[in-house]
Design a protein around this nucleic acid. Structure first.
Length: 548
DNA sequence: ACATGCGGCCAC
DNA sequence: AAACGTGGCCGCATGT
């Protein structure tokens, strides 16, 4: 029997990857003992056998990094406990997981692993005091889903993506020529008459606009250029859009694509491997980098290139009006709740109540647009000035609209005011699951809850509850898909992306409907476990590409 | 060579 | 520029 075998039967062990005699290994540690397990064929089989059991908690320092490392070796931990994640929650500080675990020698790893297990009791006591046990449990479980998601990667048709970027590059160059043509003599030229201006430099663009039109810009942002009302300014706007695509989603983006192979349809299919940061945002939202898969262009052309390889499909699912449902639940507003109960379009219903005339997507659409702008902005603690700006109306009109809105929906106003009042009293804001954002007491006193702080206090419970829900859904989906796979009901399937209130799962084409149902059901169940009153609404699509 | 801040802009 | 919350990435400019 291997010396690690008895240790691995414990309900809780520490796990630290390391190198031992030139081989990959892990230290397995309990309170009273620790051993090195070399990950040869036998070692891997032993570890994999115990790791997949739900009655074995495996404590890691950086659980996502350790799991990614183990997934490459075929080991999947069913019940990870991430010390860094729990510590970050307890301390109320952000923390970013690393890409790969450091691989110390086995002596150092033995110390680390003992330390990991011995420190756990104190950490769990602090967790108890912090009131975020449920959040910690979820965050630990979701490290497994993120490790698997990163391991799998998002499928991409590299050839198609390259062609789309090339199209935009041509558009960008054409727009640049157009700028030069329109600016004529106002473009600085070198000794040989070649245009010598950098359209990406704010100062140079301002100078060009001034010379050509006489307008002095305080900013070269799109709105300001548009307000100039000159063909040259319009040409600069036309340059910006493809520039953004080429610079952000061109070569630098494609550097993150690996494992490119030609599939049965003759497409060059690769996988984008990025890094997700589960506690990347103070609200509990996930951040994503290198590359950021949460701000890909909505443009349908690019989503066509985010497609499953031949014989496979993508299940795309999102929570419809997620944050407004959360507001409806928290505020217990009768109009909001009734609209969601009846499956109505909330923006139309709100506009109808607000303006006293029938509104739908086709009847009085301008009023629906106004209601939508307020609904959207109230989640952010928007003021009258911002509302006026977003609607392009006078500030007075914005004030009037907001006043009417809160008079019509007093529960919404009371709820938002209550969020600020509660946060000030407690010193923190809280989500449905109990996730907390703690405020610096000095900042609370200084700011007197006006301005930025009160907007965060209004927004965090809403945005954070949405994050709770999506993470819960990820855990449920991974668990259920794993069970179905084990039962032989489906083939390989798994998450390939998450964008705040949207999930993308890849599976065999033949399993599309079954997996689609699992994803929809688990997302709805995650909603119901957090919000008891307002009904869930999940939109699911199954197809070859990422649907939008 | 790297780090940092800013203007601008993509996403939810 | 921001306005109205949460992020990341681009290029430029400036620092060490």
């Amino acid at each position: 029997m291997h010396p690690s075998e008895l240790l691995l039967t414990r309900s809780l062990v520490g796990l630290v990857p390391c190198r031992h005699d030139g081989q990959d290994a892990v230290v397995v540690a309990a309170l009273d003992d620790a051993t090195v397990l070399v990950l040869d064929e036998r070692g891997l089989a032993l570890l994999a056998h115990h790791a997949r059991r739900i009655d074995r908690v495996m404590v890691c320092d950086d659980a996502k990094a350790v799991q990614r490392w183990l997934l490459r070796r075929g080991v999947d931990i069913a019940r990870p406990l991430c010390v860094q994640t729990v510590s970050a929650l307890v301390r109320g500080e952000p923390w970013a997981p690393g890409d790969a675990p450091a691989l110390p020698g086995s002596d150092t790893a033995l110390d680390s692993a003992r330390h990991l297990v011995r420190g756990l009791e104190a950490l769990l006591t602090r967790l108890d005091d912090s009131g975020q046990k449920k959040v910690a449990r979820l965050e630990c479980l979701v490290t497994r889903a993120f490790a698997a998601l990163e391991h799998r990667g998002l499928p991409i048709d590299v050839g198609l993506w390259r062609r789309l970027v090339a199209e935009d590059k041509a558009r960008m160059l054409a727009a640049k020529e157009q700028v030069f043509a329109l600016a004529g003599d106002h473009v600085p030229r070198d000794l040989f008459g070649v245009a010598d201006i950098n359209l990406d430099a704010e100062l140079e663009v301002k100078a060009l606009i001034k010379r050509a039109t006489g307008v002095v810009l305080e900013s070269t942002a799109r709105q300001h250029l548009a307000a100039v009302g000159h063909p040259l300014a319009d040409a600069l706007i036309a340059y910006r859009e493809p520039w953004k695509i080429v610079s952000t989603y061109g070569d630098s983006f494609l550097e993150h694509v690996t494992d490119v192979v030609v599939d049965a349809d003759g497409r060059s299919m690769g996988r984008i491997r990025s890094t997700f940061v589960p506690l990347g945002a103070s609200t509990g939202r996930v951040a994503c980098r290198e590359p950021n898969l949460q701000n890909l262009p909505k443009d349908a052309r690019f989503h066509e290139a985010l497609r499953a390889p031949a014989g496979r499909v993508l299940v795309t699912a999102d929570y419809a009006a997620c944050e407004l449902r959360i507001v409806a639940e928290f505020a217990e507003d009768p109009v909001f709740l009734a609209a969601f109960d009846r499956g109505e379009d909330l923006h139309s219903t709100v506009a109808t109540s607000l303006f006293g005339v029938p509104v739908s997507k086709s009847v009085n659409p301008e009023l629906r647009h106004r209601a939508k702008a307020i609904n959207f902005g109230l989640v952010y603690g928007m003021g009258p000035g911002a509302l006026a700006a977003s609607l392009g109306v006078e500030r007075g009109t914005g004030e009037e609209l907001l006043a009417r809105y809160f008079k019509t929906f007093p529960r919404i106003r009371d709820y938002l005011d209550g969020s600020v009042e509660t946060a000030l009293r407690r010193g923190y804001s809280e989500t449905a699951l109990g996730r907390r954002l703690t405020f610096d007491p000095a900042a609370v006193r200084a700011d007197n809850a006006r301005g930025e702080l009160s907007r965060i206090m209004k927004n965090m419970p809403i945005q954070g509850t949405s994050a709770d829900m999506t993470k819960l859904a990820m855990v449920r989906i991974q668990e259920t898909l794993g069970q179905r796979l084990k039962a032989g009901l489906i083939g390989d399937a798994g998450l390939v992306n998450t964008v705040h209130d949207e999930l993308v799962v890849e599976c065999a084409a033949a399993d599309g409907d079954v997996v689609g149902a699992v994803v929809g059901d688990e997302m709805a169940e995650a909603h119901r476990s957090l919000l008891r009153r307002v009904p869930p609404s999940v939109e699911v699509h199954v197809g070859p590409t990422w649907h939008h």
